[in-house]
Design a protein around this nucleic acid. Structure first.
Lengths: 137, 137
DNA sequence: TTCGTATGGTTTAGCGCTAAACTATTTTAT
DNA sequence: ATAAAATAGTTTAGCGCTAAACCATACGAA
């Protein structure tokens, strides 16, 4: 007999994986990967943040961010501005345009996936996730 | 004002990511990655399954499985047995020994993370996740 | 002031993963 | 029986990610 929490964890991982795949599929229409979307969305809502701050808030390493930004900068969506020893991040014209287009579409997509849950059910889900999140520092 | 479902999704992704990182950290003591653990655990509980079946049940491509197995076979944990045009998977002695050791430890680790949830809360979490999973085919 | 340390960013090796092309074998339809 | 289609596995290019080494700059204490 397998522990209940293991069953829950496996289900959580599965749901994450499926939604992540669905997002990747959906974002392909804009030529973006999920990681690139995350950067674009973050920079778009918090303009002027530094690379380290971005890494921290996405829970990835600064080395990873550096590589992602190399590509996004190269494709003209994001700009790095040196300021003292840090680099602050901004969307370019093209980046802003893409942001305005893709972020609402992506949010609609997520909303439609979650529309299967009753309001009460979704509140309970969020509450449980929050509690888990907080116990993981 | 951001949609509630987007907030829930971001929280779910964050929780997944944190538990995944914690698992990776924990499994490092046995020299296993999370992906390798998943393969080991799966083959151990369903001996004789084929590579394609394993790929399907882990929701990854057969190409990925093939590479993972190359390493696991090379390190003597798993054996491929050709049968007609398929290859069936089995644990070696060493693989079985590692399985018996690492699977319970990993399950205890997950259980301890989830112990913060009240039984009622965990039931609600699982119910919501199940419903989401089922709507994603 | 100057030396040591901390901090932000870059680079690199290596595994994880996908998509797509490829090989080989089995099945099916005629 | 044979040609065509389907299926299992392998390979490869390329992005995602980490850890760790590295570079450069800013800061703090003596």
């Amino acid at each position: 007999m397998r522990k209940a929490s293991v069953v829950t964890w496996l289900r959580l991982a599965r749901v994450f994986q499926k939604i992540d795949h669905a997002s990747a599929e959906h974002l392909r229409a804009w030529g973006l990967s999920v990681a690139q979307f995350d950067v674009l969305a973050h920079v778009g809502t918090t303009e002027g943040l530094t690379q380290q701050e971005l890494a921290d808030s996405l829970l990835v390493t600064k080395g990873n961010i550096c590589q992602l930004l190399d590509r996004l900068e190269h494709s003209g969506l994001i700009e790095r501005r040196q300021e003292r020893r840090t680099k602050r991040l901004f969307l370019t014209q093209a980046g802003q345009k893409l942001f305005d287009d893709v972020v609402p579409a992506q949010e609609r997509m997520i909303a439609s996936l979650f529309s299967t849950l009753a309001p009460e059910e979704e509140r309970a889900l969020l509450a449980a996730l929050r509690r888990l999140d907080h116990t993981l520092q």
